[in-house]
């Protein structure tokens, strides 16, 4: 059970850390000042969640690894984040589509995790839920503004939705680790979230005058460490300081 819990907390931590890192890449480059601050703020929420989760994962593992070691000193194949969060920022529309798909899942996810039998996870969920509500509202507003905007913005938003669609199925994947923890009342079963996620996505995309992609092949692999080609590059930047100066503290 301990191994499964460690793996589960690490997944959640990796999702948050990697998306936080991606959003941090926008710092100083976003289309407007307000949006620059907004994306950095959202990134900060994710990094905060990742810190709490990594620290907890380290306690469960009991080998003395802290948040920094778990985040900065593991290799590509040891990361178990979903593929969606590691996708490159692309243009602003792709960043927004990635954020929207993820937040539309995470809000109902955290709401359910508050009822986990694991008290630490429940406590983290209670904080993260409030943050996810803002993330969903922010990204949904942009999907609508861009989709229902100019011809150019509509086209780019549609392209982004279609490009990332293949990675959304992984959010609902249940493997043995997850199944065990669901049965034990610790993890959230993603299956019941599927309906709510689809409804949110359909409502926002239709208001944005965007076409909803058809259900199709879902690319998975992230949970078992098989990542897309972008991931190694992300890690090399994210982990550079700890690799170059082992044990560095701010």
């Amino acid at each position: 059970m301990k191994d499964q819990l460690f793996a589960y907390v690490l997944r959640l931590a990796d999702d948050a850390a990697i998306l936080g890192q991606r959003l941090g890449e926008w710092c100083g480059h976003a289309p407007t000042l307000e949006e620059d601050i907004g994306l950095a703020n959202i990134g900060l929420d994710y990094i905060g969640q990742a810190r709490a989760l990594y620290t907890y994962a380290g306690e469960i593992e009991g080998k003395g690894r802290d948040e920094d070691q778990l985040c900065f000193l593991r290799h590509e194949r040891e990361f178990s984040n979903c593929l969606l969060v590691e996708q490159p920022n692309g243009d602003f529309a792709e960043t927004i589509a990635r954020e929207f798909f993820f937040a539309a899942f995470m809000l109902p996810f955290w709401t359910r995790l508050k009822a986990s039998r694991d008290e630490t996870l429940a406590a983290i969920a209670a904080k993260a839920e409030k943050e996810a509500a803002y993330h969903l509202r922010h990204s949904a507003e942009w999907v609508i503004r861009l989709g229902d905007g100019t011809g150019e913005s509509h086209e780019r938003m549609q392209d982004a939705v279609e490009a990332l669609w293949i990675y959304t199925g992984e959010l609902f994947e249940v493997d043995d680790t997850l199944a065990t923890l669901i049965a034990d009342g610790i993890a959230v079963d993603p299956e019941p979230i599927r309906t709510e996620w689809r409804e949110t996505v359909a409502r926002v995309l239709s208001e944005a005058t965007l076409a909803i992609p058809e259900e199709g092949y879902a690319q998975t692999g992230g949970r078992s460490g098989i990542h897309t080609e972008h991931f190694g590059h992300l890690l090399s930047e994210m982990q550079y300081m700890q690799r170059a100066y082992p044990g560095l503290k701010w």
């Binding site: 900060l44 929420d45 905060g48 904080k127």
Partner: peptide
């Protein structure tokens, strides 16, 4: 207790 999880 933090206001936001990531509050610096």
């Amino acid at each position: 207790t933090p206001t936001y999880t990531g509050c610096p």
